[in-house]
Design a binder for these strands. Structure first.
Length: 438
DNA sequence: GCATGATCATGC
DNA sequence: GCATGATCATGC
């Protein structure tokens, strides 16, 4: 029998031992030749269990280190443009069985066994390397906080509630805050049955949202985060925002600037967003729950007649990058699957005033329309064309320049350049969505 | 008054 | 020096 170099009953011991993999690859721990012919990401976790921790691999849904109650996860990092690393994608935790889960409770769920206590091992993802040649750079022994547990429980119940309503096909990652129901299966073609509707649904799995995983990855460096949902009985972001902001509805921008604008530049283009953070009573730079849930705040200026004055922009894309992506792992899909907090200011006779806010997720059909616009854009780039869909040709989103000026260009496969562009939400679409009741 | 192309102000 | 959120400018 093999002697382990760590105590499998002790999470601390397991964690200390795991550090031997830092700045190394799994291949460094494999004696002799083994047959590894897969780049399959999912394999790496199992291979680490087998060849590094010397565990008998099983696919039971209990924790990997059973006696320590500890789950092992390996996950990839990507390089940031400005240096450093960040999680490449969400952390997938376990498949959702639509038929079984409707009879479960979160407290007794398989999922909870896995996510309560985890050893996360982060490696630098390099596309052309085999899984056993990926380099690990950081391990984190992570235990869920009580408040995060409460939020995940609520997330879990939201997802299961939708399945019980026969709406599994309408699930979206934006339905929830930390625990998302992400799609499984390649190319988006797979469908499976659901218990309370004839409509077939995408197979899905629970996952920590990328935004949530990111905060685990940088944990310890989050001095700039302020938690706002402190009471576990009051986990509703909408209520939190309403409690803070309702009393300012109707106040003019000028008077809000007078009250909250101390030290802020009136000319800053994000001044209205900065004011709202102060109206929310947030002292630090970021709201912890917003960051973890990946909530996007956007200021919407609307005219006297209620029409938004502008479309809403997003970061510019890089043509040569997005043609190598699928819709499923595209940045724009991540955006349309996000929750938004719209902060609304309306023009009045004496400047604009704070009109209110709306916590919003894009409806299912409109996410399909966004996918169409994205696919059209990628197809055109592949053909070296730049006649992307205009606002007049779409109902939800369009493509338009987004650069510091027209000397900032992007490149087509054939080397020709064009002004940097991004996806925009149509102003008319925003108007329609804002006019809906919540 | 909207569609479209272009650019500003800030922060990192 | 560029990315980003946001807004401006022009022409139809």
């Amino acid at each position: 029998m093999q002697v382990l170099e760590y105590d499998p009953k002790s999470a601390t011991s397991i964690y200390e031992y795991s550090k031997k993999l830092i700045n190394k690859t799994l291949r460094d721990f494999i004696d002799g030749e083994i047959k590894i012919d897969s780049k399959n990401k999912g394999d790496l976790g199992n291979l680490v269990e087998k060849y590094f921790f010397k565990l008998a691999v099983n696919n039971k849904s209990e924790a990997d280190f059973k006696e320590a109650g500890l789950e092992l996860k390996t996950t990839g990092l990507k390089k940031l443009a400005r240096g450093g690393y960040t999680p490449k994608e969400r952390l997938v935790l376990g498949k959702i069985d639509y038929h079984k889960i409707v009879n479960e409770k979160f407290q007794d769920s398989h999922l909870l066994d896995k996510i309560n206590f985890m050893l996360l091992m982060f490696y630098i993802f390099e596309k052309d390397k085999l899984s056993i040649d990926q380099i690990f750079i950081k391990n984190i022994l992570w235990k869920m906080s009580d408040i995060d547990f409460a939020i995940m429980k609520k997330d879990w119940e939201t997802v299961v509630g939708k399945i019980r309503d026969g709406r599994a096909h309408e699930l979206s990652e934006s339905d929830t805050l930390y625990l998302g129901a992400c799609t499984k299966g390649s190319k988006g073609k797979n469908r499976t049955s659901q218990p309370f509707s004839k409509e077939s649904a995408r197979p899905r799995a629970f996952a920590f949202k990328q935004s949530y995983l990111k905060t685990i990855f940088i944990s310890g460096n989050n001095d700039e985060y302020e938690s706002v949902l402190k009471d576990t009985n009051e986990l509703d972001i909408n209520k939190y925002v309403a409690n803070k902001l309702n009393k300012f509805i109707g106040r003019s921008f000028n008077s809000l600037y007078e009250e909250f604008g101390n030290g802020l530049n009136l000319k800053a283009k994000n001044i209205r967003q900065l004011l709202v953070y102060r109206m929310l009573g947030v002292k630090k730079k970021h709201i912890e729950e917003f960051v973890k849930a990946g909530i996007i705040t956007k200021v919407v200026r609307i005219k006297k007649n209620g029409t938004p004055s502008q479309a809403i922009s997003f970061p510019a894309f890089k043509a040569l990058e997005i043609i190598n992506q699928d819709w499923e792992d595209s940045d724009f899909k991540a955006i349309v699957e996000s929750k938004f907090l719209f902060l609304i200011y309306q023009d009045g006779n004496d400047g604009d005033y704070f009109k209110g806010f709306k916590l919003w997720s894009m409806p299912y059909e409109d996410r399909l329309e966004s996918e169409r616009v994205w696919n059209d854009t990628v197809d055109k780039i592949r053909d070296n064309k730049t006649n992307f869909l205009k606002i007049s040709q779409t109902n939800v989103a369009h493509v338009r320049p987004h650069a510091t000026n027209n000397t900032y260009v992007d490149e087509l496969p054939n080397g020709k350049t064009f002004p940097k562009k991004c996806f925009w939400f149509n102003s008319g679409y925003i108007k329609k969505e804002l006019s809906k009741s919540i």
